[in-house]
């Protein structure tokens, strides 16, 4: 028969609790592969960073690279575009935060905080309003115009007018050398 310990539980109960606990642990451990298989696979992760050769891009030109299934604009800015961007007062901007993955979240949206090298603008080409792809060299600010609902961005990709709430995002990237960047 089951033996009683001083606090009233029996050895039998301890066994049952142990069985139940082991069963729960087993099910929990077994559940993990079913959940983790939905996370990005090694094949997807291998595409998580992209290197870009900058030599073909002339001043005033822009190329679009796919990075993690998103379009990234890599633009060689003209002197005029750089000066215009620098001249803007950050306090006047609808979104005063840099939105730069390479900097802390609170960094202000100065032109210097939107680039690493001033003549190269690298940003994710997805409008922060509802996700359309903006067009360059249109709109009042010499930068980007989103054709869907009319958001207008300047030559540093910052929102100036229109429904978009935030500046175009800057992805994590770095210069491997003067002519090559690695995004992600």
């Amino acid at each position: 028969m089951a033996s009683a310990t001083s606090d009233g539980t029996t050895r039998r109960d301890f066994l049952y609790i142990a069985s139940g606990a082991m069963g729960a642990v087993g099910v929990g451990l077994a559940a993990w592969p079913f959940i983790d298989q939905m996370n990005p696979s090694a094949a997807v992760l291998a595409m998580s960073s992209t290197e870009v050769d900058l030599t073909p891009v002339q001043e005033g030109q822009q190329i679009t690279i796919m990075w993690r299934s998103k379009p990234v604009f890599v633009r060689k800015r003209t002197k005029k575009e750089i000066e215009e961007a620098k001249a803007v007062n950050v306090a006047d901007l609808p979104d005063g935060v840099a939105r730069n993955a390479n900097l802390p979240d609170s960094a202000p949206a100065t032109d210097a905080n939107r680039v690493i090298k001033p003549d190269w603008l690298v940003l994710i080409g997805i409008c922060t309003h509802l996700g359309c792809i903006p067009l360059f060299n249109q709109g009042e600010f010499g930068g980007y115009l989103c054709p869907c609902h009319g958001s207008q961005y300047d030559t540093a990709g910052r929102i100036r007018k229109g429904p978009a709430p935030e500046n175009l995002f800057i992805p994590p990237y770095n210069f491997m050398n003067d002519t090559r960047i690695k995004i992600g």
Binding site: W32, P33, F34, D36, Q37, N39, S41, A42, A43, V44
Partner: peptide
Amino acid sequence: ENIMRDVNYGWLL
């Protein structure tokens, strides 16, 4: 083969 090599725990499933 993608399941066996690249999907997390794909080989196990």
